[in-house]
Amino acid sequence: MLRALAASKWVQPWPLRLCLISLPKKRRAFASNVITPVPLSYTVFDGSSPQPPLVFLHGLFGSKANFQSLAKKLVLQTGRTVLTVDARNHGSSSHSSMMSYEAMSADVQLLLHQLHLNRCVLIGHSMGGKTAMVLSLQRPELVERLVCVDISPSETSAVTSFQAFVAAMRAVDIPQGFPRSAARRLAEEQLRSTIQEPAIRNFLLTNLVSSEGKFMWRVNLEAVSNHLNEILSFPDFQKPYSGPALFLGGSKSEYISSNDYPEIERLFPEAEIQYVPDAGHWVHADQPQQFLTAVCNFLELSPR
């Protein structure tokens, strides 16, 4: 059952400042000046520590379920409360035609306000990592420290196949009335021609849901498709986030390269960059124990 957190030392009210969130000047020519946050679905794993909670933000096509097992282990290892969150247009969260990082940041700010959290540790993978970066740059007082998993504040269209994933998912056609097992097999067969990796197909198929005998994708593919270029880019910011930050890449991934180091240093001057051996883009799934070790070690570091 979803519920708000009980009061503790890190639960303090803070003023609601996100109903009228202005976009950076660079984007005002292309979008509305006002963003309306949407309510997000989340799960809480209670810890006993008074330290700020950990908030997990998943990547494109993911959901809060991606981090549940890791969340439980982090509660045991750190004592901190952990939240896993569905982004807008993903999982059980509300759908919206807007799909920008400013909008997703506003959603998380609304959630923190609703839970009366004035400080947290943001841990974001891929799209969730960019969302976490934007929130930390907009509202640094809310972010004790930042972990960005296999993502940098840069354009990522050159290293991703997400365009092909969206096209393949939109092309899936399942006749009405199919039983779930048969529907999943049919969807996988239709995805196979474009997506050869079984692990990626299985990951995308976690979005396949049934409603009144009809199968559909729970991720809002229309919104994702309409804003994919924006999702693969990063907004323009000038003022850096001065708190501790960890950019944790996979050694087999190209999402954090040496070309990204200058921009990481400019926007996150206290950042550390580490790579997990034998891990691809989904670092936490490929090497969960090494991922947990890196996060726990980072949490124990004193701010500089």
Rank of each mutant, 00 (worst) to 15 (best):
P277S: 00
A6I: 03
I195A: 12
K25T: 14
P175K: 03
L246C: 09
T194S: 14
N207A: 07
V11I: 04
D236W: 10
H95N: 11
V38D: 05
M99P: 03
K72G: 13
S97G: 14
S96W: 10
S242Y: 08
G47E: 05
N33Q: 12
Y101I: 02
Q176R: 06
V85G: 10
V149P: 07
E197V: 07
K214G: 00
E222M: 02
D107F: 01
C19V: 15
S211P: 06
Q274H: 06
R88V: 04
T206S: 14
W282R: 11
R3E: 05
Q289K: 13
S161H: 04
W282S: 10
S97N: 06
S193V: 13
R304N: 07
D46I: 01
P24S: 01
S96C: 02
N226E: 15
N89V: 13
R184K: 15
V159D: 10
F234W: 14
V11T: 07
M216D: 06
P50C: 06
L122Q: 01
R185V: 03
R28V: 14
W217I: 00
T78E: 06
N259D: 04
R3N: 14
D278Y: 12
I195Q: 11
G59V: 11
Y275I: 12
A167V: 06
S211D: 12
R145Y: 02
A65P: 05
G59A: 03
A168N: 05
A87P: 03
F268D: 03
K214E: 08
S49P: 15
F56S: 08
S258P: 08
S126C: 05
